[in-house]
Design a protein around this nucleic acid. Structure first.
Lengths: 301, 301
DNA sequence: TAGAATTACGGAGGACGTAAGAATA
DNA sequence: TATTCTTACGTCCTCCGTAATTCTA
């Protein structure tokens, strides 16, 4: 269970090929084959089915642990590296699309007028934001999601990362302009479970999450995807929604600014769209500053 | 960052000595020294201060990740090993002290009358219960704690372990018989923050947890320990409480059966004592059976 | 000065590449 | 039969133990 072997393992499954994984990792095919063989010998089971390459049951189990394991390994290394970095006047903010709201943008402006800080904003998917903060590729992160009011987002706990609430606001559903429900004051999310949805896991609220928060109320499933939208482009998502491909959930103030769609607030179940600020245990000075601006408090602790 | 090196690292810090760690791990001191040197070279920092042996700042950071990392590594191995184990008619239940309630005991009795299953109950601290389930040293776990009603316990998420609620019941504080507050109908936990408490992290509700759930209300700290009780012995804890060493929080029905103390329910903040059932992704047949008996449902999913 | 960690060094085993051999679509 | 994985084998490097050395309480 050497990390190198595990990295090879995920690469093999990711590429569905030994040789592709080998060239991606800078090994020969032979080495990759030996890595997998070593893992399988260690664990006493076949992990990968060959030709075509696919995980066995045991391999699937291992895959439930390995990415998190490797991420945490990187996080540990990053945490230590952070201790010795020079104080910087540069700030990298990783941000999921719906988390980059007008107030956040204003806070960033405030930071840049107050101090001469070079700012870089990276819009990423939710997991990628968390990963960026943990591995110190970003100084600060903003992730959005839905939860019951004043409940925290269910983020995977990956060590000593501090998160503090940044903002809660109403959740809305995007309807094409002129849609029968677009005139409503508010909608019940549970009523829409059987509608067609756009599966945009990185941009809108993931359907699986909608299922989870509604499933706590009614036991049902629903929220089936009709079309899949990858990437982090809110505008493109709105275009799909406007064209009637399906529904999507976004924070209301953001949704209200999108063309071709009408944002109808969600009335029940009682939910909010929540944005949380992630920062590592010892943020840089600019990161502390921005965190303070975003939360309205001092960024200490 | 080889797992072997990390294991040596935690052993060195745990024993506060290279040579002690060496003999514990079956290495020579030299090997341990080389392990630490390799880690330090890899991470580019000193991790351990020598004579006396203690973690540096970087070493402390690494220690925030390493135990969880090694546990997850073991959990992955255990998950895979579970796939190939023979079906068994043995059941090991790991259980935190306050989770072993009368209904649980009855459920166990039901299991033994229904099927010829050899049952073993292991009472452990909370972390040890989780660890036992994850590493397959137990088939099923029961952990207790406090939370807001119908909120889940804040368990560290260590991979694909399913948890389902088993029971919620009122939380109570143990007062010595005859204590001025022992006659009360109910108490506010926040009123007791400045009282003396028994620090019994494995048996009672950990003080840190009380601080956390009360801290969400008032920002204060409090709940300072006066005496420390280690181990998993409810009766001994009660004896300390009866002798006036300090207060402790336990589920009410359990607390009510203890001699020498009076259990006063907690009125505010609105909290419950909660017991959660932990089981691995693919429980054994007896484990499924017992889970069904405890929750009152079928143990499927 | 004694206890404890480091350094030097050598042998055994492991890791990776080259190249030849099996297996499958 | 071509592609892809496996196996064989040689080399280099790493790992760990023995033993001599340095450090520090």
């Amino acid at each position: 269970m050497d990390p190198h072997l595990l990295r090879t393992f995920v690469a093999v499954l990711g590429h569905r090929s030994f040789s592709a994984a080998a060239s991606a990792l800078g090994y020969t095919q032979s080495a990759v084959s030996q890595h997998i063989a070593a893992l399988e010998a260690d664990l006493g089971t076949r992990l990968v089915e060959r030709r075509p390459v696919a995980p066995t049951a045991a391999g699937a189990r291992l895959m439930e642990h390995t990415p998190a394991l490797l991420l945490r390994l990187d996080a540990a290394r990053a945490d230590i590296a952070r201790l010795h970095r020079a104080p910087t006047d540069r700030l990298v903010l990783a941000c999921s699309p719906a988390a980059l709201s007008a107030p956040v943008a204003r806070a960033l402006a405030g930071l840049r007028t107050a101090s001469r800080v070079e700012v870089e904003v990276r819009v990423l998917g939710r997991e990628a934001v968390i990963e960026a903060v943990l591995t110190a590729r970003a100084d600060l992160g903003l992730v959005d999601g839905v939860a019951a009011p004043s409940d925290p987002l269910p983020l995977p706990d990956l060590g000593p990362t501090v998160t503090l609430a940044a903002a809660e606001e109403p959740l809305a559903v995007l309807f094409p302009d002129g849609h029968p429900l677009a005139g409503r004051e508010a909608v019940r999310l549970t009523d829409l479970a059987q509608a067609h949805w756009i599966d945009a896991p990185d941009t809108a609220v993931p359907l699986e999450r909608l299922r989870a928060v509604c499933g706590a109320v009614s036991g049902a499933g629903g929220f089936l995807p009709r079309i899949r939208h990858l990437g982090t482009d809110v505008h493109g998502l709105a275009a799909l929604a406007a064209a009637g491909h399906g529904l999507a959930a976004l924070p209301r103030t953001l949704a209200a600014t999108l063309p071709g769609v009408t944002a109808v607030p969600v009335r029940a179940p009682r939910l909010v769209h929540r944005t949380e600020l992630l920062h590592p245990a010892d943020p840089t000075a600019p990161a502390r500053h921005l965190a303070g601006l975003i939360t309205g408090h001092d960024g200490d602790s």
